[in-house]
C-alpha cells in the first residue's frame, strides 16, 4: 500500500546517499517519477521556465518538455479541473499550487470531483492526482502565503493527505504519492525547503506510516511538517530539564497511523499535539478525540494542543506570536507534567 516498491527498485541505480535541501529532494523525486512513468505530468503556475516560485521544478521542463511540465494559465480551478480530465485519459497529473492560500479556487474540483470519483463510479474510475501545496508560515510573507489548510482536505473522504518534514522523506514520499492509486494532497513545509539532510537509498516506510523520530518515556508529542523540527528542539531542551519527550512525525494526516500513536500514548500516558494550523477543529482535535476514546485508562493527563490561534493568519510582524515555538511546546509539557 503506497510503499513504492517500484521507487525502491529504481533507487538502486542512483547515487545514494546524497545531501540535499528539501526543495531539491522533491525536485529529484519528481524527476525520478517522471523518468519511471511517462504518464506523470506536472502542472502549475510558473513551474516551467521559472521552475516554480520555490524552484522545486527547476530544470524539469528543459528535460521533459512543455507537454510534461505544463505552464498553465493562472487559474487554479482550471488547473485542477483539467488535471481531472488528464487523469481520466490515463495520465498522472502532479499539480503544484503556488501557495497554500491559493488552493481555494480549486477546492470544488478537489472535494466534489477528485475525492468522490472512485465512489461515484463504483470503482470504475480512479484519479491518481497529486496536489503539491507549499504550506505554513514563518517566512515573513504577505497575506495568503502562510496558511495551514490541511484539515479541510483531511476532513474529506476519498482524499489522502501527507506532509513531509525532512529531505529524505520529501524525496521518497513524493514518489510514493505519485504511485498511489488514490488522490493525495502533498503538503510541503515551505519554511523548511532550505533545510539540508541526507537522502538514503530507499523510503524509510510506507507513505501512510508515522515515524517515531525521537524515543522518550514521559510525554508523546505528535507533530508534522514544519513543527517536527521545532518539537525535536523542544525535546532536546526538555531532556536538559529532566523530561523525556517521545516525538512522532505523523507524516500522514489521512489516514492517521493510529497504531503507532496509540502504542506510544499508552506507554507515556501523556500527549501533546503540535501544529501551525488553528487548533479549533484542527488535526489536534481529531487526535485528542481518538486518543481519549482508545486509551482513556492509560492517560495521566488531558491531551493538550499547541497550535495557531483561531484567527486569520496574522501579519508577518507578529506571526511569531501566532506560531507554536519551542517555548510554547515546553509550556505545554510543564502543564502536562503537573498532573
Amino acid at each position: 500500500m503506497g510503499d513504492a516498491t517500484t521507487a525502491t527498485t529504481a533507487a538502486s541505480t542512483a547515487n545514494y546517499p546524497v545531501n540535499s535541501t528539501m526543495a531539491k529532494a522533491i525536485t529529484t523525486g519528481l524527476r525520478a517519477s517522471m523518468e519511471r512513468d511517462p504518464k506523470v505530468i506536472l502542472m502549475g503556475e510558473d513551474i516551467g521556465k521559472l521552475g516554480g516560485v520555490f524552484r522545486v521544478t527547476e530544470g524539469l521542463q528543459k528535460d521533459f518538455g512543455e507537454d510534461r511540465v505544463v505552464d498553465t494559465p493562472l487559474a487554479e480551478a482550471g488547473i485542477m479541473g483539467t488535471a481531472v480530465g488528464l487523469a481520466l485519459r490515463g495520465y498522472r497529473p502532479v499539480v503544484e499550487i503556488q501557495f497554500d492560500g491559493f488552493v481555494y479556487p480549486a477546492f470544488d474540483h478537489i472535494v466534489s470531483t477528485i475525492a468522490k470519483m472512485r465512489a461515484r463510479s463504483l470503482g470504475h474510475v480512479e484519479l491518481p492526482i497529486v496536489v503539491r501545496i507549499p504550506f505554513g508560515g514563518g517566512i515573513g510573507a504577505v497575506e495568503h502565503h502562510s496558511e495551514s489548510n490541511e484539515a479541510y482536505f483531511a476532513h474529506t473522504a476519498g482524499l489522502r493527505v501527507v506532509v513531509c518534514s525532512n529531505p529524505h522523506d520529501a524525496h521518497w514520499m513524493i514518489q510514493q504519492a505519485i504511485e498511489c492509486r488514490d488522490p493525495v494532497i502533498f503538503y510541503e513545509p515551505k519554511r523548511r525547503y532550505w533545510d539540508k539532510g541526507e537522502i538514503g537509498p530507499a523510503p524509510s516506510r510506507g507513505l501512510f506510516e508515522a515515524a517515531t523520530v525521537r524515543p522518550g518515556t514521559d510525554v508523546t508529542v505528535l507533530a508534522y511538517g514544519p513543527m517536527v523540527r521545532t518539537t525535536l528542539q523542544a525535546a532536546q531542551a526538555a531532556e536538559e530539564e529532566g523530561t523525556s519527550l517521545e516525538v512522532i512525525d505523523l507524516r500522514s494526516l489521512s489516514p492517521l497511523d493510529m497504531d503507532v500513536i496509540l502504542e506510544s500514548v499508552r506507554r507515556t500516558g501523556r500527549c501533546i499535539v503540535v501544529h501551525e494550523a488553528s487548533t479549533f477543529l484542527g488535526l489536534g482535535a481529531e487526535l485528542a478525540a481518538q486518543i481519549q476514546e482508545k486509551c482513556f485508562y492509560s492517560l495521566e493527563a488531558p491531551v493538550l494542543r499547541v497550535g495557531g490561534y483561531n484567527v486569520p493568519y496574522p501579519q508577518s510582524r507578529i506571526e511569531e506570536d501566532f506560531l507554536p515555538d519551542l517555548d510554547r511546546v515546553l509550556d505545554a509539557v510543564d502543564r502536562l507534567m503537573a498532573h
Binding site: T82, A83, L88, R89, D108, T113, V125
Partner: peptide, 27 residues
C-alpha cells in the same frame, strides 16, 4: 463505467465537466 461507451458520469456541479472535458482533450 464511463470508458465503456466514452460517456462520462453525469455531473451535477454546474460547469465542472467543461474543464474535465478540456483536460481529457489535452490528454
Amino acid at each position: 463505467d464511463p470508458n465503456d461507451k466514452n460517456f462520462h458520469l453525469y455531473t451535477i456541479i454546474i460547469g465542472a465537466q467543461t474543464l474535465h472535458a478540456t483536460g481529457y482533450a489535452m490528454g
